[in-house]
């Protein structure tokens, strides 16, 4: 390596030991860590899925059709995010901004749905203090909602950078990091939706 190689390789993909960019390895490492985070939360939920403390059971609590629609919105947002990335890689900044704005909007609809759901449950007396089931439900879905919120902030950040002209085509890998994170958060939701909402209500005829 010559002295002309910058000491800060994180912006430059070509001079790393593996050929992958530092950012990409970092985001995958971070997502690996997140797997354990959500894994532990989901395990807690599974352990407590019958601990109702005399309160409502899971099957009595959730509004499946509503959550299904909201979940569909989130899954859809993964698609718009991917299309956005594709547009940026092709250099179509207008399309990129449109797709990213759409993704952020879909994410906000999801968060709005969750806020509505939480409010509704609280009004029905199903609160974080009700039972171990309720505690693990709120903490699991709440942390997921927090992750979505962070994702929305990052998407808005991308949008702002793009509008300021600071996200050129060759920086598409920076956007890719956010999209990867977004996709991960969506996949986690699919698992949560299955474990938390679908499985306990299967027998509900």
């Amino acid at each position: 390596m010559s002295a002309h190689v910058p000491a800060v390789p994180e912006a430059h993909e070509h001079h790393t030991s593996t050929g992958l960019s530092n950012n990409k390895i970092a985001i995958w490492a971070f997502l690996g860590s997140e797997c354990l985070f959500f894994g532990s939360l989901i395990s807690t939920y599974i352990l407590y899925h019958n601990q109702t403390n005399g309160g409502p059971t899971a099957a009595e609590t959730y509004n499946i059709p509503f959550t299904a629609i909201v979940s569909f919105v989130l899954v859809l947002s993964s698609m718009t995010a991917a299309l956005g990335l594709l547009a940026l890689q092709k250099g179509d900044h207008k399309a990129f901004r449109a797709w990213i704005a759409a993704t952020a909007l879909l994410g906000m609809i999801f968060i709005g749905g969750q806020a509505f759901e939480f409010t509704h449950l609280y009004e029905e007396g199903f609160t974080i203090q009700t039972s171990p089931l309720a505690s693990s439900f709120f903490v699991l879905t709440g942390f997921h909602g927090g992750h979505v919120t962070v994702g929305i902030l990052m998407l808005l950040g991308l949008l702002a950078m793009s509008l300021l002209g600071r996200l050129p085509q060759e920086d598409a890998h920076r956007a890719e990091l956010v999209i990867l994170y977004w996709g991960f958060v969506d996949i986690v939701w699919v698992i949560i939706f299955t474990v938390v909402y679908l499985i306990p209500t299967l027998g509900r005829g």
Binding site: T44, Y48, Q51, T52, N53, I128, Q129, T130, S131, P132, A134, S135, S136, F138, V139
Partner: peptide, 9 residues
């Protein structure tokens, strides 16, 4: 919350 509240399960 009730994660470790034995009385609540």
């Amino acid at each position: 919350a009730d994660f470790f509240n034995v009385a609540a399960g």
